[in-house]
């Protein structure tokens, strides 16, 4: 079973339990096929409420390093309350992505450097696999995010279906798929990236 460490150990602004989150992550790490000898470090920024969602999944010195906005696990109906279903979906997606970086996606840039289009594609690939494992999945929501960054086109919809239903992909294949979508997308190039980034959200001073 993978060794999981969750920061902070005690939450003060939200009703989250680090032990519960670590337990879910341990179970899911095994389920998504992350090798047992890969340590998992999870950092959750409890200061960020809905709708300020965002996450990163990287591999640093052989370990999975996952960062989440607290909003990712928050129940939309009850302020600052943990939602087990959402947490499972987000953790599964991030663990799949960290696992990918160990196999087939080693040449992918770090999460902070991904374009929104690449991130949306990778998340679709990850959540589709989580769905096939029987985990709670949000296909329409994921497709909306994918369309937002890869275009509201038939080409993008076909690409999404491929990502959602495929079991194996490499970084270069995923990147090529994004390029196909971009070629068919009539919108101008985005001026900046959108996803909540860990670096830009750090408290000042």
């Amino acid at each position: 079973m993978a060794r999981v460490e969750v920061t902070p150990e005690q939450f003060t602004l939200v009703e989250y339990d680090a032990g519960v989150i670590a337990g879910i992550a341990e179970e899911l790490a095994s389920k998504v096929g992350l090798p047992d000898d890969v340590p998992v470090r999870i950092e959750i920024d409890e200061e960020l409420p809905l709708p300020l969602t965002g996450s990163t999944a990287d591999v640093v010195e052989g370990g999975a390093v996952l960062w989440f906005s607290g909003a990712d696990f928050e129940d939309g109906r009850r302020r600052a309350v943990f939602n087990d279903q959402l947490a499972r979906a987000e953790l599964a997606m991030a663990l799949f992505r960290a696992g990918d970086r160990l196999q087939g996606f080693a040449d992918a840039p770090p999460d902070e450097s991904l374009s929104d289009a690449q991130r949306a594609a990778w998340e679709a690939f990850a959540e589709g696999r989580a769905a096939r494992l029987g985990e709670f999945a949000r296909k329409v929501r994921r497709q909306y995010v994918f369309r937002l960054y890869n275009g509201f086109t038939d080409v993008a919809d076909d690409a999404f279906e491929r990502l959602w239903t495929t079991e194996r992909f490499t970084w270069s294949e995923l990147d090529a798929l994004c390029a196909e979508c971009k070629a068919a997308d009539p919108r101008p190039e985005p001026k900046q990236r959108s996803a909540i980034r860990k670096e830009t959200l750090r408290a000042q001073g």
């Binding site: 602004l13 939200v14 409890e46 200061e47 960020l48 409420p49 809905l50 709708p51 300020l52 969602t53 965002g54 906005s69 607290g70 909003a71 939309g76 302020r79 600052a80 929104d116 929501r141 909306y144 995010v145 937002l148 960054y149 985005p190 001026k191 900046q192 990236r193 959108s194 996803a195 909540i196 980034r197 830009t200 959200l201 750090r202 408290a203 000042q204």
Partner: peptide
């Protein structure tokens, strides 16, 4: 919500709803 004051101290990007703004999909969904 005490988190609101914490967020106000941060650079979370503009709140104006634009696709390139942070967390745009979930802001739009909410």
């Amino acid at each position: 919500d005490p988190r609101q004051a914490k967020v106000a101290e941060r650079n979370t990007g503009s709140a104006k709803l634009q696709p390139e703004r942070p967390a745009a999909p979930d802001r739009a969904r909410q």
